[in-house]
Amino acid sequence: MSPTRFAPEHRWIYVCAILLLLALVVVGLIQYNSVKTTGDAHKKANQLADELVAAGYSGPDTGGVVRTLGTDGGNVCHDPGSALKSGLWKINLSNGAAGPGQRPVISDRRVVEAEAIILGVYCPDKLEKIQDKIDDLKTDDTVRR
């Protein structure tokens, strides 16, 4: 038997070892991407919490923010200026009744500012596109602090 050849009866050991090594490399790469994404999401959530506290709001649960908004803002940043989202946004600024009792109200400016802060952290390019809609809303100081 030459020293450069593997023993045929042990070939399965080498094949299994190579397959196991490749599987570990794939799992390691997946875990690395997951940890990197989670780290980025926590960084953005902490930035959002800091900006909300600086604006006078209470700090949110950053774990919930990470799960909800991730790294890209999730559904909040998906076309916020569309007619459907604008309509739903205005419905959420109503009196809270349903059906014929639902009426528009003058919302507190701080409610609108909070959404603008979220857009500013997660998708600042989209905030610029809807800033004029935000400015056109009739708001006032309606909530006692």
Rank of each mutant, 00 (worst) to 15 (best):
S2F: 14
T4M: 08
R5G: 10
F6N: 12
F6A: 08
A7K: 14
P8G: 09
E9L: 07
H10C: 12
R11E: 12
I13P: 09
Y14Q: 13
V15R: 12
A17E: 12
I18K: 08
L19I: 09
L19T: 11
L19H: 02
L19A: 14
L20K: 04
L20F: 09
L21K: 01
A23V: 04
L24N: 00
L24W: 00
V25C: 09
L29K: 07
I30Y: 03
Q31H: 05
S34T: 11
K36Q: 15
G39I: 02
G39Q: 09
D40W: 06
A41C: 11
H42G: 08
N46S: 06
L48N: 13
A49N: 05
A49D: 03
D50C: 09
V53H: 11
A54R: 07
A55G: 05
A55K: 08
Y57N: 07
S58N: 13
G59F: 05
G59R: 11
P60R: 09
P60S: 06
P60H: 10
P60L: 10
G63L: 00
V65N: 05
V65D: 00
R67T: 10
R67F: 02
L69M: 08
L69Q: 03
G70Y: 09
G73W: 04
G74K: 02
N75K: 13
V76G: 06
H78Q: 14
P80N: 05
P80M: 07
S86L: 11
W89V: 05
W89Y: 11
S94A: 15
S94N: 06
A97Y: 14
G101T: 06
G101P: 05
Q102G: 04
Q102D: 10
P104A: 03
P104K: 08
P104G: 03
V105T: 12
D108T: 01
D108I: 02
R109A: 10
R110S: 08
R110M: 12
V111C: 08
E113N: 10
A114L: 07
A114S: 10
I118G: 04
L119Q: 03
G120V: 02
G120L: 00
V121K: 02
Y122Q: 02
C123H: 01
L127A: 01
E128T: 11
I130C: 05
I130F: 07
I130T: 13
Q131I: 00
D132P: 11
K133D: 15
I134H: 13
D135K: 00
D136F: 11
D136G: 10
D140R: 04
D140H: 08
D140C: 01
T142P: 00
V143H: 06
R144H: 09
R145L: 08
